[in-house]
């Protein structure tokens, strides 16, 4: 009985993970393909890697995307953390339900809608005030609005299971509210802030639709470049890019996971050792 159930579940897992990873692996394999036809294997080659490295447009677009993503990471984390904090800690303030709606909507709102809405705002603003010029600034603002909501969700759920008695203890020991925040709250939510930053960074690096709407004629982000090249047909250089992204992201995440695992193990060992002493 249980044997059959667990075999079924194992099958479901195997199928699910194959579904998730086979496309990615196939992309990596074909980045080493000799042939221009991405789908036909014609022998191992680093040809497309060479072409990729010499592709100046690609590098320029990547640099723009990276700068936007870093700025986006910091501003979205600041705004998102504030919003998450407000939602988690202040059960009542004027317009709270609208506020929480404004946080939830970008999570699911189709990006084409957000794209056209942001662009129209920037056009009107530019008409009225001469600011902002479309390009870096407008893409960054659109990305911040979008990704701050995701950061807010992370911070809010972290604070929801936060042990308030730690803050009360600090206050009881004479710390003023801001000191409590700086010395107790902030260090404890720091991991959530880091994951919020990383998520905001990734969302920005990944976005094509908002950028397509809000970018000016001069600026082109990496996803925009990839998108226009993919529309023209498959290109082995995209496979190379995919391989680089997957390798960097994959190893970063596995490394982070390993570090976290090790830290937890260390804590457990310490706790065990402490228990032995007493």
């Amino acid at each position: 009985m249980t044997g059959r159930t667990s075999r079924l579940l194992l099958g479901a897992l195997a199928f699910g993970y194959a579904f998730l990873y086979v496309p990615i692996l196939s992309m990596i394999v074909y980045s080493f393909n000799e042939s221009r036809l991405v789908t036909v294997w014609a022998g191992f080659s680093l040809k497309w890697w060479g072409e990729f490295i010499r592709n100046e447009d690609m590098l320029e677009a990547a640099w723009l995307s990276f700068r936007i993503a870093v700025v986006n990471g910091f501003v979205a984390t600041l705004l998102g953390a504030s919003a998450g904090f407000a939602l988690a800690r202040y059960p009542r303030f004027a317009g709270r339900s609208i506020f929480s709606g404004l946080i939830a909507a970008p999570l699911v709102m189709p990006e084409v809608i957000m794209g056209i809405a942001s662009l129209l705002l920037f056009v009107v603003l530019e008409r009225l005030t001469g600011w902002p010029e479309r390009g870096f600034t407008t893409i960054a603002i659109a990305h911040i609005t979008f990704s701050a909501a995701f950061v807010a969700v992370i911070i809010q759920s972290r604070l929801a299971d936060f042990d308030r008695s730690l803050e009360e203890a600090a206050m009881d020991l004479g710390a003023r509210p801001f000191t409590v925040f700086r010395t107790v709250t902030l260090p404890l939510i720091a991991p959530a802030l880091v994951s919020g930053w990383l998520l905001a960074f990734t969302l920005s690096m990944d976005d094509v639709i908002l950028a397509q709407f809000t970018a000016g004629p001069q600026s082109q982000t990496l996803p925009m470049l990839v998108y226009s090249s993919v529309r023209l047909g498959v290109s082995p250089q995209i496979n190379v890019l995919a391989t680089i992204i997957v390798t960097v992201v994959g190893s970063a995440i596995v490394l982070a996971g390993w570090l976290m695992h090790r830290a937890r193990r260390q804590r457990e060992r310490d706790a065990h050792a402490a228990a032995q002493v007493t």
């Binding site: 990839v226 993919v230 995209i238 995919a242 992204i245």
Partner: peptide, 8 residues
């Protein structure tokens, strides 16, 4: 990893 590339 990139959404666009996964669709690609």
């Amino acid at each position: 990893t990139s959404f666009l590339i996964r669709i690609y």
